[in-house]
């Protein structure tokens, strides 16, 4: 009975404390966290490491150029191994995205549970725009390096 009351008050606090935009983004963040946990569980149960799956990039096979997502998996693997510089070299927006994601989720969680002050509703959206801009800029840089200078980012 007491746990049910606590659960209901937590649900009410969750609905009332977060704005519409932040609540949707927080829920999407929880889904992403769930996918991450599922991947970790898959590794421990079956031994399959999803980061080791080398999915051939159709864009690269057809055009022999980097796609906007090229290097993402390599960068994530490097980040999980503690190689920050290699992670930034392979895919710069990933570290930025991870930092924004962690800060946003932690601040929302603290705001819901302990009432800690957070930024206004929807303030995180500009950081998402910066992520998109970084993604497109690094794609252009890689294309220019490959086409103009013959430098292949991933040998």
């Amino acid at each position: 009975m007491r746990s049910q009351i606590m659960l209901n008050s937590l649900k009410t606090a969750y609905k009332n404390k977060l704005g519409n935009t932040d609540r949707i983004l927080f829920e999407l963040g929880l889904v992403a966290l769930g996918i991450g946990f599922a991947a970790v569980l898959l590794y421990f149960i079956t031994g399959i490491n999803v980061l080791r799956i080398k999915y051939p990039c159709a864009f690269n096979r057809v055009t022999h150029l980097c796609c906007p997502g090229c290097g993402g998996t390599r960068s994530l693997r490097a980040l999980l191994n503690g190689e920050i510089l290699k992670s930034i070299y392979d895919y710069p927006p990933l570290l930025y995205g991870v930092i924004v994601y962690v800060v946003f989720m932690v601040r929302c969680f603290l705001h819901i549970c302990f009432g800690v002050k957070k930024s206004p509703d929807g303030a995180v959206v500009k950081y998402i725009y910066i992520f998109v801009a970084l993604m497109l800029i690094q794609w252009v840089v890689k294309l220019v390096a490959q086409l103009a200078f013959g430098y292949y980012w991933f040998v």
Partner: peptide, 19 residues
């Protein structure tokens, strides 16, 4: 802003998954 947020997220994933 449900539609707008999901549209933005799908758009980002579409760019990452265009290959």
């Amino acid at each position: 802003k449900v539609f707008a947020i999901i549209s933005l997220v799908c758009g980002i994933l579409a760019i990452l998954c265009m290959c």
